[in-house]
Design a protein around this nucleic acid. Structure first.
Lengths: 164, 164
DNA sequence: TTACGTGCAAACACTTTGCACCTGA
DNA sequence: TCAGGTGCAAAGTGTTTGCACGTAA
């Protein structure tokens, strides 16, 4: 982790930015929660444990800066808040998410299924892919297990009681 | 188009809702711009041509309602505004977007490349896919052609941010 | 010194909500 | 009558910005 911070520090400095204590605290929070997709507010609350005097605006500015440097990626799952995801080292980072529509959990899977499709887009549409994003909405393992236990004959066609 | 409206009317009525003039105007705007991804504000401005007295809140309420009925889908391209997309008739609607990072245009391609992946998710992760979303970020045909033509520094482009 | 960074509060943009009024079965 | 629907304005929410102050090279 220290190596990772050092690397980010280099990256900042190479662009003329500093790794201030506030920024370092923010980066540490992100590294410690690398598997989650934290919102700015999430990050803010976690950073405050390390640096209580930090302001929300600084967190936003830091996240914005790190996004521009491609240290992390700003993303949006449609719940109205931006979420941030640490980028790995590879320039081609693929984000596949399994979003449960029931419990709202977001699992991340790493795989590289789409390279053939990107080839095809280039040839068929002359569209030069820089990045992509693939999200699946559905029912996660935990929820479908739970649903079976609780409601044996539950079907999706729940009609409203308007017809009486 | 009238058939489509009638169908939506039925759908509303079956759930106890009415197709008011305001809602109809909204639906018509959506049908007339089916290929675009309009924001609520976009819809509002277009609807006002048909029904000048309509309020923005009503547009939001209508879009929300139609989303719940799965007549349209609320989506988010990360630019801070919700956009709405008419759903086709098929229960499985696949949305693949080519988002140009230069001019901001969004092209839609309809295809069904992911079914094998969905199978795999079910078996490997016990994740039951209901829908998915695939977005590609990159350079569109128009922009890459233009970039080749004008090699010199054209820094600020006055391109419209038309999301079409 | 000088340019970057910060905390705070105000401003902002998009969206939702409270409320009084309206409308049609 | 009565529930659903509407327009307006106000409130909410997440995010950005202006500004005075701070800080390190």
């Amino acid at each position: 982790m220290e190596a990772r911070i050092e690397q980010i520090k280099q990256q900042l400095q190479s662009q003329g930015y500093k790794l201030t204590p506030q920024r370092e605290a923010t980066v540490r929070v992100l590294l410690e929660n690398e598997d989650d997709h934290l919102s700015a507010e999430d990050v803010f609350m976690l950073v405050r444990d390390k640096a209580p005097e930090i302001g929300l605006a600084t967190v936003y500015r830091t996240l914005e800066l790190l996004s521009e440097l491609h240290v992390l990626e700003k993303m949006n799952f449609g719940d109205g808040v931006a979420r941030y995801d640490l980028r790995g080292d590879s320039s081609h980072h693929h984000h596949h998410h399994l979003i449960c529509v029931q419990c709202g959990s977001v699992d991340e899977i790493k795989d590289d299924w789409l390279t053939p499709l990107e080839e095809r887009l280039l040839h068929e549409f002359q569209f030069q892919v820089l990045d992509h994003r693939l999200d699946f909405q559905g029912i996660c393992k935990r929820c479908s297990t739970k649903a079976q236990q609780e409601a044996p004959s539950n079907h999706d066609s729940e009609k409203p009681s308007t017809v009486s």
